[in-house]
Design a protein around this nucleic acid. Sequence first.
DNA 1: TTGAAAGCGCTAACAT
DNA 2: ATGTTAGCGCTTTCAA
Lengths: 339, 339
Amino acid sequence: MADVTLKDVARASGCSIATVSRVLAGTRPVGAETARRVREAAAALGYRPNHAARALRSRATGTVGLVLPQITNPFYPALVRELTHALHADGRAVLLADCDDDPAAEAEHIADLLGRRVDALLVIPADEERSRAAVAAAAARVPLVLMDRGCGPGVADSVAVDNGAGMALVLEHLAATGRRAVCFVGAEGTVSAAAERRGAYAAGAGALDPGAPGRVVLGDFSVEWGRAAVDQVWAARPDALVCANDLIAIGALQRLQQLGADVPGEVAVTGFDDIPMAALSAPGVTTVRQPVAQLAAEAARLLAQRLAGDAGPQRAIRLAPELVVRESSAPKRAARTPA
Amino acid sequence: MADVTLKDVARASGCSIATVSRVLAGTRPVGAETARRVREAAAALGYRPNHAARALRSRATGTVGLVLPQITNPFYPALVRELTHALHADGRAVLLADCDDDPAAEAEHIADLLGRRVDALLVIPADEERSRAAVAAAAARVPLVLMDRGCGPGVADSVAVDNGAGMALVLEHLAATGRRAVCFVGAEGTVSAAAERRGAYAAGAGALDPGAPGRVVLGDFSVEWGRAAVDQVWAARPDALVCANDLIAIGALQRLQQLGADVPGEVAVTGFDDIPMAALSAPGVTTVRQPVAQLAAEAARLLAQRLAGDAGPQRAIRLAPELVVRESSAPKRAARTPA
DNA sequence: TTGAAAGCGCTAACAT
DNA sequence: ATGTTAGCGCTTTCAA
């Protein structure tokens, strides 16, 4: 099982190592008969290229760094899955770094990955501002695609869901099902998911009710905040709670049920992202599904293009999401199945 | 920003590249003054070692492959997080491969990672039997630690939770809170989580009730199965459903609530793993928490030992889990908070 | 303690 | 179409 090298394959197939390299890497035309012999010998010996050597010579490792804030954020596993599949399909391997929501750790991981000579980076920044320096520096060295969250304008290519369009879908759905006293339960901060969803609500809610754009409470993207928010807004008896993500929606749902409120009879609850939990809660949470597979595919495609030398203008790709209607926003008058 | 090499540092600090290498890698004693100059020059130039070259020369990449069945399995993100942190703390990078529960894809990923010269592998096998060949072959080439699931006896070192001890904790807790008509909702198959939990129930449930060990229904590890299982067993009015994992428990809980059953008043429900959803459902699911951080730490330690040359006998490390009591198993007579 | 020199396995000029 | 040769950046003998 000792490592088989090009030299061994060359000896076995009776030609030079350069020829073998050309056959196996497919860089240059090679005689059909020679190619066959080489391939046979390689297979017989169980030849496996040494990526380290290849990387040293060709200055490309076939490796992409994936840097994210927290793999335990319930939206990310699906994204990671699709990204790794898309990249593996292109023959690239994925070096994973989890930053624990810490921009300092993020900067270190990025530097380490660069030292390991990743060909490119996929980054979900931990913080809109404090991630910027490290991301910008890295983007100057290798192709870099930002995902899910932004990192200031003009820093790098980016691929994300169109948060505004998603929020518009929610508002439209609520309008169509007769909700008017709508209230937004959002998140503070400049992270794009927070800011864009907030902005889209403010821009679109006026169509339902003149007072709606002003009915906004802000916290963070957590179940706890969802629970707490209900205590702030329930006294006013809104007929719909538009939550900035599914975790908030699940928290809100729980607290409402605890308070004896009828969801969706009295009040609808909507989320955003379509994490697995959204489908499993009772009632299921109406939400906006991010096109995860397509986001991953776009990111992989963009990366491949940049690696192929495309130096075109910076790109910001936004994909339209899809509304997933579940029981939490069924029409008001719907009778609940008795327990 | 062009790459700074050892040669550049050598020139800047006025000594040979060999000396610089020795200072930076700390392999051999070097004069204090020289060392200082070298370090200064390296810092000033922003030197970053080229891992590809280092790997080629020293036959170690500082990289570990992490191969798992499905990152979207809700138990894995936390494990991946702890594993990457533990390995990064040792200066290693993690190449991630998601196999989509397909042993063939798993074999390919393992072969690719070996070609990329990972120093070691961490594998959560997709299948007890069909993963064996690839895992055994890999284990012959590099240190390999199996996690979470087994892969046949004697294949490689392994680190996992003690499933039997966890199930014993659950049964003990149910006994102490007066449950007797206990029923097990498990999963078919030979994967260790399924088999060991099943076995431990069969072994321990007799202490509660002579008929308990026989009250077993088997499906898979899914919410859907949890729901379906209730329809099979509820007619007999068990006072506790011991589920083989949290997903099953959540499904069972939902179906019971739909049927109007009082949980925990009439029937307790318990899970296993303590995935995030277990805490978020209403009522919260009593479950067995896997010591994820410690599992990761043990795996990293074992790997480091093997990489350091330890050729001791194969090790199977089992860590004791912890019972997390939530509302789903509160004592029968407890009054429910009125809505 | 330090330097010179020989490669690790591979690819890419340059020859032929 | 194929072979020869020169390194990629680093570590590690072997000398000094």
